[in-house]
């Protein structure tokens, strides 16, 4: 939540790799669990920050498949309840729209 205050200082311990790090989490952009864990270690502590840093949820499906998993991983890395991690902002269009169709907008033609 935006109201959630996060103090961010450099990590003191070195990053520890885990066995399941190579597993794909974001199917569209092929982002692994390890990359997400590393991003959190690097200071990306919200879903939007991880998204901007790694492109998780920026692919064709716009996070429909992975956002819950990404959130769980961030929460786990930060040792906070998952409910405290806000889901990435919702954006138009909620389905991909070809530019030719977006441009073909009847309201404007009628003017």
């Amino acid at each position: 939540m935006k109201e959630c205050v996060i103090r961010r200082t450099a990590a003191k311990e070195p990053f520890m790799a885990k066995l399941e790090d190579s597993m794909i989490v974001c199917r569209c952009e092929e982002i692994t669990k390890g990359e997400i864990r590393q991003a959190v270690y690097d200071g990306m502590m919200t879903m939007n920050e991880v998204k901007r840093y790694l492109r998780t949820g920026m692919g064709l499906c716009q996070g429909q498949s992975c956002s819950r998993k990404v959130r769980d991983i961030i929460a786990e890395e930060m040792s906070v309840p998952r409910e405290t991690i806000e889901i990435s902002s919702a954006r138009n269009p909620i389905r991909p729209v070809p530019m030719s169709i977006y441009a073909n907008d009847k309201a404007c033609k009628r003017r």
Binding site: R27, C28, E30, G59, L60, C61, Q64, S65, P96
Partner: peptide, 15 residues
């Protein structure tokens, strides 16, 4: 370069 196919079958996942 990994193979992908049908996953959701309803147009959501784009795989």
């Amino acid at each position: 370069a990994e193979p992908r196919g049908i996953f959701c079958a309803i147009g959501r996942c784009n795989d």
